[in-house]
Simulated assay, not measured.
Amino acid sequence: MDLEHQTCVVTGASRGIGRGIAVELASEGANVVVNYRSSEGEAYDVVEEIEEAGGSAIAVQADVANIDEVEAMRKKVTNAFGPATVLVNNAGITVDKKFTNMTREDWDRVMDVNLGGIFNCTSVFFDDITDAKDGRLINISSVVGQQGNYGQANYATTKSGLFGFTRTIALEMARSRATANCVAPGFVKTDMLETVPDRVQEKIIQRIPLGRFAEVDDIAGMVSFLASPKSSYMTGQILGVNGGMEW
């Protein structure tokens, strides 16, 4: 098992892509921290699923936009499993509106979570990751950060911002042999996609060369690879998992 004895913190792990990542990392032997902000029941469902499969996990509440809560999460992680060795920055939100209807509050809220949360979590767990033998930082972006998307100026800006952050932090972590990489998923079958009207989904699929939406496992498998020793010579990379969409 590639991740045996590793401690992996996955933010926003109570549902969707984050849940899939948490379950996949646990299946590879990692101790997994299932972070959530408000979906307590769903987070404990993830922990139960992992434990029933023979894995080890805990659920920890923390709003990634609040650095005090992230600091408190780190203490719980250390008490349960020791220092984190892998951090998956997955938590994010959307507040979708045409730019002409978007308020500064709409803009700031998405910035605070999607970029501010990345800063908070990376800052708090930075020493743990760089002190680890095989420290890994994995940021979850989006094809929207590469292509843009109508009504998502705030979200697209945060997701493209992760590219520059990942490349820069990879340089700063390299001396310690820790790596930092970014996964940019395409359109994934999650409850968020289910809210998109069928006619819009059909138009999106027409833009995907492979002719289908991603499964959560498609993304989780890539994250598992990046967390493992198999990726030890890969850092600062932006990995598009999008079915062949151009950008």
Rank of each mutant, 00 (worst) to 15 (best):
E4H: 00
H5Y: 11
Q6Y: 04
V9T: 05
V10K: 09
V10C: 12
G16P: 03
G18I: 13
G20V: 02
A22V: 00
E24K: 15
L25V: 10
A26P: 06
A26R: 03
A30G: 10
N31I: 02
V33F: 00
V34W: 01
N35S: 08
Y36D: 07
Y36L: 12
S38A: 14
S39A: 06
S39M: 07
E40P: 12
E40A: 11
E40S: 09
G41K: 11
D45T: 11
V47I: 05
E48T: 01
E48Y: 08
E49M: 11
I50L: 05
E52V: 00
E52P: 03
A53L: 09
A53Q: 14
G54L: 07
G55L: 03
I58T: 10
D63N: 11
I67E: 12
I67C: 11
D68C: 06
D68L: 13
E69Q: 15
A72R: 13
M73F: 07
M73D: 05
K76V: 10
V77D: 05
T78D: 07
T78K: 12
T78A: 09
F81C: 08
G82N: 08
V88H: 10
V88N: 01
V88Q: 03
N89M: 05
A91G: 12
A91S: 13
G92T: 06
F99A: 14
F99I: 08
T103N: 00
R104Q: 04
V110R: 03
M111G: 06
I118H: 14
F119W: 11
N120P: 11
C121V: 15
T122D: 03
V124M: 03
F125L: 09
T130F: 02
D134L: 08
D134V: 07
L137V: 09
I140C: 02
S142R: 01
S142C: 00
Q147L: 15
G148C: 12
N149A: 14
Y150L: 15
Q152F: 06
A156I: 14
A156D: 10
T157R: 12
T158F: 07
S160H: 00
G161R: 09
G161W: 11
G161L: 13
G161S: 14
F163L: 15
G164E: 07
I169R: 08
L171C: 03
E172H: 04
A174S: 12
A174G: 15
R175P: 05
A180N: 09
A180F: 04
N181R: 02
A184R: 11
L193F: 08
E194V: 06
T195S: 09
V196D: 06
P197C: 04
P197E: 05
P197S: 12
R199Q: 12
V200Q: 02
K203F: 06
R207P: 00
I219H: 14
G221F: 03
M222E: 01
M222G: 01
M222D: 00
L226F: 02
A227Q: 01
A227N: 04
S228G: 04
P229N: 02
S232Q: 14
Y233E: 04
M234D: 02
Q237I: 01
I238R: 06
L239I: 15
W247D: 13
